[in-house]
Structures are given as C-alpha cells and as structure tokens.
Write a protein that binds this DNA or RNA. Structure first.
Length: 389
DNA sequence: TTTATTTGACCATA
DNA sequence: TATGGTCAAATAAA
C-alpha cells in the first residue's frame, strides 16, 4: 500500500473523528452532517479504489490488512452511523466494495478469502442475511440459507479440495481459508472474533511451522450437532496474521434458539422502522409470535446500548422505553424493552416472546447488549439453562 | 459446581 | 510410517 493510500485513510479517519467530536453540538444540523459524511465517504472511496487496484493484482497485502484491522478496532460511532446509512441506502458500506475482497469498513470485516470462496460482496441479490453476512466478511458457509452442497461433516469424507496446503485431508470440500490480521490491541494471541462462539478442543505443533495450530469447534456442537469447526494458525511468514480454516456449516442457526449470523452494525431507530417496512426485510422478520433467534453479541454492545438509550426519547415517558429491535440478519426481537440490570441466565427455551413478556425480554436484551465478547458472552449464560444435557 | 482449556494419547489418512 | 485431526482426562477458571 502506498503512502498516498495510507494518507487518505488517515485523513478519512481524522475527519470521522472530528465529526464525532462535533456530533453532540451539530446533531440537528442535517446539512452539515450530510456534507461531512459525504466528504468522509469520498475520502474512503478513493482509498478503497487505490487498494482495490492493488488487490486485483492478486497480492495479499499484510499492511493493508493491518490497516483494516486498525480501522476496525478504532471504528467510532460516527463510522457506524455512516455504515448504517449506506447499508440501508442499498449501497455498499463506506469503504466496502461490490467486487473487492479486501478492506471493508466494518468492525468484523478483516479477512481475505484465500481459496474456495464465493464472491461474498458481489451478490446483488440474495437474502438479507447473506448480504449482511457478506458485508461482515463472514465465510460463505456461515451464511444462513446458503447451504454449501459440498459440505460434509467433520469426517464426512467428501471429495478432495483444491487446497494445496493441506492435501492430507480428503474432506477438504466446504473448507474456506481466511487470513485475518492479529488484533493490534489487547491480547494479540487470540484470533480475531468472527461472531460465532467456539470451543477449543485441541492444539498441535505442525511440521515446519513455528506456531502450533489450534482446533476449535462450535460451542453448540453437542446441543445442535453443529459440525462447524475451524483451525487457527499463525503464519510462519507473518506472525501477525492468522490463517483460519473453516470446516463445516453452522447448523445451530437452524434452531430458533440457536445463534445465528450476528446482527449488522448499529442502525438508527427510524432506519430500522423503515427497514421493517421493506418487503425484502419483512421476509426476515418473524410475524405475530416473535421467535427470538438469538445471536452472538453485537459488534459493539456499547453502541447498541447507546442506541437503546437514544430511542428512549421517542418512546416517551420517564421510564425506560420499549424499543423495536430487529436483528436484520434473520432474527427478530420485537418489543424488547431496555430495562434495568438483568439477572443471571434466563430460563426460557424456544422463546416465543409476546409483548406481555416484556420484562423478561428486557432482561434478555440487557444480557445480550451488555455482553462484550462473542465468546463467553451472555448469550451463553442465557443458553446455559437450555444446554443441560 | 459447571464450563472451558490444556495436553498427551489415539486414530485415520496419505 | 509420518503427520494431522480428534478424544478425553486433568486442570483451571468462573
């Protein structure tokens, strides 16, 4: 990545942060906000185009990848807002590309699909869940409704894949290899989160590799017989990059109580309402009896909390208001109230939440949105009562 | 007490 | 037979 691209990205980030700083005072200045957003977007688009031109040469750029990680980790509420606007406007998220497979302006999008991938970004059609998952950079096999016909179970014995790196396994079909930069902050030993919860079941030294390979399976493997697995290994040539191999599809999302694709970034309340009215979205919004399809923690619980509190103004009253919360990725929680502190694990099973159950839903929402990590998050607390074997 | 992680042993595959 | 992948007991953490 050349210096000009870096400069553009830096400039865009600075502009976004400046905007964020002025947001409290300028929140009502729509024209100013619009202009500012447009300026920021144009800067990132220029950066994106420069990066795309490099990426299309087929070169994985660890520096660009690192910047993507940095962008992700430093994403501000203002950035979320920009992204939300573009998401609902039908256009690509700021900084994302309809064709590229590189930097996407999203907290979760960091990966570079290396093989056996589908054009995650390119699908003009597809379900919302697919689009959202694609925008979030998830491997195609993690997108609900997208069944990989070639996928087999852990020892399914499918046909051999084209992987040249691990020719030993015959069940290579359905595997996807993603490279993601190691977190720049915090514990860099931990592979970046991908929105699902994983349980580590093994670690093994690999021949001719400096770093051991870690083996993970879906946390819900037992309960839902979810065959999804992943292997995580640091690259010998670039210790700051993880190579993550996904195997098997998540089947846990098939259950109404199971985790699914994570929700999209923060969306404004009115945008959510508008989205609700969109026929394409209604497909994903359950009707009268609202089945709660629980998801891993949102990318930014803080932001979600902010959003909930933002919404209180329109909800009226001195009490904490009821909000319509819609998980656009296929889940729905209706009339979930943002209420006080929650207790520990909530004893609900296949949750058909009625409006009358708001207090309980409120606790659940609290548990969901106050959790910080997708692993060991409150959702597991919620599920723990159900996971009794 | 429950759940997650670690790690040595075992098994399957090339 | 070497190697990668998984199991399961031991241990740690919550």
């Amino acid at each position: 990545m050349d210096i000009e691209t870096i400069t553009l990205i830096t400039q865009g980030c600075k502009m976004a942060k400046d905007l964020e700083a002025t947001l409290p005072n300028m929140a009502t200045q729509h024209e100013y906000l619009l202009n500012s957003c447009n300026e920021i977007i144009s800067v990132f688009i220029r950066a994106k185009e420069r990066i795309n031109s490099k990426a299309q040469m087929g070169v994985y750029d660890p520096i660009a990848s690192g910047v993507a990680e940095w962008l992700s980790s430093s994403q501000t509420p203002a950035m979320h807002l920009l992204q939300a606007q573009h998401l609902l406007a039908g256009g690509p998220a700021p900084g994302s590309s309809s064709t590229s497979r590189n930097i996407v302006f999203d907290p979760k999008v960091k990966g570079v699909l290396m093989q056996d991938d589908q054009d995650l970004e390119g699908g003009a059609g597809g379900t919302l869940a697919e689009v959202v998952a694609a925008r979030r950079g998830f491997p195609a096999n993690m997108v609900p409704e997208v069944a990989d016909a070639t996928t087999s179970g852990p020892r399914g014995g499918g046909a051999s894949s084209s992987s040249s790196q691990r020719p030993r396994r015959r069940d290579g079909a359905g595997t996807r290899v993603v490279r993601e930069p190691a977190p720049q902050m915090g514990n860099t030993e931990i592979p970046p989160e991908d929105g699902f919860t994983w349980r580590k079941y093994g670690q093994k030294a690999i021949l001719h590799s400096r770093f051991p390979r870690s083996y993970f399976r879906c946390t819900h493997q037992k309960l839902y017989k979810c065959p999804a697995k992943k292997q995580v290994q640091r690259l010998d040539t670039d210790p700051n990059t993880f190579e993550i191999t996904y195997r098997g599809d998540h089947t846990c999302h098939l259950s109404s109580t199971a985790p699914s694709v994570p929700p999209p970034p923060l969306l404004l309340h009115n945008q959510l309402i508008a989205a609700q009215q969109d026929a394409t979205l209604l497909h994903h919004i359950s009707a009268a009896t609202s089945t709660v399809n629980l998801t891993p923690a949102p990318p930014s619980s803080v932001l979600m909390t902010q959003w909930l509190s933002m919404d209180i103004g329109t909800g009226g009253g001195g009490q904490r208001a009821t909000s319509n919360i819609i998980d656009l990725a296929g889940a729905s929680i209706t009339n979930a109230a943002a209420a006080g502190p929650s207790g520990s694990g909530l004893p609900f099973g296949r949750a058909h939440i009625n409006v009358e159950e708001q207090p309980r839903v409120a606790d659940m929402a609290d548990a969901m949105f106050n959790s910080g990590s997708s692993s060991n998050n409150s959702m597991d607390l919620i599920f723990s009562s159900m996971d009794n074997k």
